[in-house]
Nucleic acid binder design. Structure first.
Length: 470
DNA sequence: TTTTGAGTTGTTCGA
DNA sequence: GTCGAACAACTCAAA
C-alpha cells in the first residue's frame, strides 16, 4: 500500500519512537501529518475540571510536538468530538489514509467504528495497528481456539508464542509534513485548570518516563520480586501512568525484562496484556461480573461506609493510609489496591463497581481493563481459578507488608506516636495508653468501622449464593 | 469424553 | 512467635 499523504492519530501513545502507527505511516506514505484530539466526549464526562490526567496529557503533547518538530513535522491538536474532528482534518489535509494504534475499550471501539465510517464516505482508508499490547485478544488462545480465562496457562502460552519480532522496535524512515507553529491549547482553553502534577512529583512526557525507567532499570529491576510488596519501600517502577498514556513503549519494557531475566516483573507486563485481552473478548465485564453467578450477590447499600472508605477514615490504619495516598497523589501501591478493594467488598459488603468507579475517577494511571480486572479479582467475580475466595485480613496484611508501620505513619500522621505493637490495630491499646499518647480512638482517630471477624462471617454468608447447589 | 493437575498475591488453627 | 496443615471445593486447560 502506498499513500500520498497520511495522518497519524495519536490517542494513548504520546511518543515519537517505537510507535507502530507512526512507523507504518512513515513506511507507507510520502508525507505524514500527526494529530491529537482533546475529545469532548471524554473530557466532558470527567467529574471535575481539575484533572491530573488531562494536565499530564497536555504537558506530554508539548513534548511530543517538540520531538516531531525536531524531525521536521509537528503535532496538530484539536478540541472537539474525535468522530467529527478526525474525518474533517483528514479531508482538509487531503490525506488518503489515517493511522492509529488499536484500542480495546468498548467505547473506543465504537468511536473508531464511527470514524472509519465517516472516513470511508470520503474514500479515506483507516489502519489500526497493534501497539498497546504485545499480543491481541485473538493471538494467544487455548488449543480449542478460545480465549483463556485463567492467567497462568495464558502466561505460558504467551511466553511460548513470543518471538523477537513481537517486541522489535517499531520504526521507519520517512517524511513528516511540516506544519505551522505550535498551537497546543492551554488547559484553560479546553476548560480545565492546572493540577498539582508537579507537587506530587509526576513528570509527564517521554522525558518523565525515561527518567523513571532509567532509575528502575539501573537499580531496582533485579530486586523487584523481593521488594515489590512493601509500600514503604521504593520497590516498583512507578511507570503505570506512562504505560497508560504511551509515553514509553511496552516493547521496550518487555525487551529489557527478558534480557534481565526479570520474570516477576515480566509477569506484571503479561497481566497487562491478559486484561486487555479479557476486555477485548469479554466486553460485558464493564458492567457485569466475569463469572455471571456473582451477579446474584446482594451488596449492602451503605453510603456512609463507602464515604468512610473513600476518605480514609475506616479505622483500619493500612486501609486509611492507602486511600489517603490515592486521594493525595492519584496513585496507590498495587498491594494496597488489593487490600482496599478486598476491604470494600468483603469487610464493608459494598458492590465492587462502586470501588471501581472511585478508582476510575482518582487514579492517574486509570485503565479500564486493568482496573476492572483488578476489582473483579478482588471481589472474586473475575479471572481467578481458586476454588474458594480469599478474604484479606486488613490487620494481617498490614503486619506482613508494612511491619514497622512506616507507610501508615506517612499518610496517617495522627498515628505517628502509636507504638509499633499497636500501629496495625490501634483500638487494641488500653484507654490509659491512648490518653497517655494523646491518641484516643474515636476522638483522634476513628474506631474501626466494622469488626473484621464479624464482617468475614457476613461475607461468607453473602457469597454462599455462588456455591454450586445440586 | 474422561481424567488429571493446578490455580497471583490468603487465613486460621493448633502443635 | 513460628510452622505446617486444613480450610473450601471448583473449573480450567491439557493430556
Amino acid at each position: 500500500m502506498h499513500q500520498e499523504k497520511a495522518l497519524v492519530w495519536f490517542r494513548r501513545d504520546l511518543r515519537d519512537h517505537d510507535h507502530a502507527a507512526l512507523a507504518a505511516a512513515l513506511a507507507e506514505a510520502g508525507s505524514v501529518y500527526c494529530a491529537f484530539v482533546f475529545d469532548r466526549e471524554i473530557l466532558d464526562a470527567l467529574p471535575t475540571r481539575c484533572d491530573r490526567r488531562v494536565h499530564f496529557i497536555r504537558e506530554s503533547l508539548v513534548e511530543l510536538d517538540a520531538a516531531l518538530r525536531a524531525r521536521g513535522g509537528g503535532l496538530i491538536v484539536c478540541h472537539g468530538r474525535a468522530m467529527k474532528e478526525i474525518p474533517a482534518l483528514a479531508r482538509e489535509l487531503g490525506v488518503t489514509a489515517v493511522y492509529a494504534n488499536r484500542d480495546y475499550e468498548p467505547a473506543a471501539k465504537r468511536r473508531d467504528a464511527d470514524v472509519v465510517a465517516a472516513l470511508a464516505e470520503s474514500g479515506i482508508a483507516f489502519a489500526d495497528l497493534k501497539d498497546q499490547a504485545i499480543f491481541d485478544g485473538d493471538e494467544v488462545l487455548t488449543q480449542a481456539g478460545k480465549p483463556f480465562s485463567v492467567f497462568t496457562p495464558y502466561k505460558n502460552a504467551w511466553l511460548k508464542r513470543l518471538t523477537a519480532a513481537d517486541h522489535a522496535v517499531a520504526s521507519a524512515d520517512g517524511h513528516l509534513a511540516a506544519i505551522p507553529p505550535a498551537s497546543i491549547p492551554t488547559l484553560a482553553e479546553i476548560g480545565f485548570v492546572e493540577s498539582d502534577l508537579q507537587t506530587v512529583g509526576i513528570l509527564p512526557g517521554m522525558s518523565g518516563a525515561r527518567q523513571l525507567w532509567d532509575e528502575f532499570r539501573a537499580g531496582r529491576l533485579e530486586r523487584y520480586g523481593a521488594l515489590r510488596d512493601f509500600p514503604a519501600i521504593k520497590g516498583v517502577s512507578y511507570l503505570s501512568v506512562h504505560l497508560r498514556f504511551g509515553t514509553i513503549s511496552i516493547r521496550e519494557l518487555v525487551r529489557t525484562a527478558l534480557a534481565s531475566e526479570a520474570a516477576t516483573w515480566l509477569n506484571e507486563l503479561i497481566w497487562r496484556d491478559f486484561y486487555f485481552m479479557i476486555l477485548d473478548r469479554f466486553p460485558q465485564v464493564v458492567t457485569a461480573a466475569f463469572k455471571p453467578e456473582y451477579d446474584t450477590i446482594r451488596w449492602d447499600d451503605w453510603p456512609e461506609g463507602l464515604a468512610a472508605w473513600q476518605q480514609g477514615r475506616t479505622g483500619y490504619p493500612l486501609v486509611d493510609a492507602a486511600m489517603r495516598q490515592l486521594n493525595f497523589s492519584g496513585w496507590m501501591h498495587n498491594r494496597l489496591r488489593m487490600v482496599v478493594a478486598s476491604f470494600l467488598c468483603k469487610d464493608l459488603g459494598v458492590d465492587w463497581r462502586l470501588g471501581e468507579r472511585y478508582f476510575a475517577d482518582q487514579l492517574n494511571d486509570f485503565d479500564l481493563s486493568a482496573n476492572n480486572g483488578g476489582w473483579q479479582w478482588a471481589a472474586s467475580s473475575g479471572c481467578d481459578a481458586q476454588p474458594y475466595f480469599r478474604i484479606f485480613n486488613p490487620v494481617t496484611q498490614s503486619e506482613n507488608f508494612d511491619p514497622e508501620g512506616r507507610f501508615i505513619r506517612r499518610y496517617v500522621p495522627e498515628l505517628a506516636r502509636v507504638p509499633d505493637k499497636y500501629i496495625h490495630a490501634p483500638w487494641r491499646m488500653g484507654r490509659l495508653e491512648q490518653e497517655a499518647l494523646g491518641i484516643v480512638i474515636g476522638r483522634d482517630y476513628p474506631a474501626p468501622i466494622v469488626d473484621h471477624a464479624a464482617a468475614r462471617e457476613r461475607t461468607l454468608a453473602r457469597y454462599a449464593v455462588v456455591k454450586r447447589r445440586d
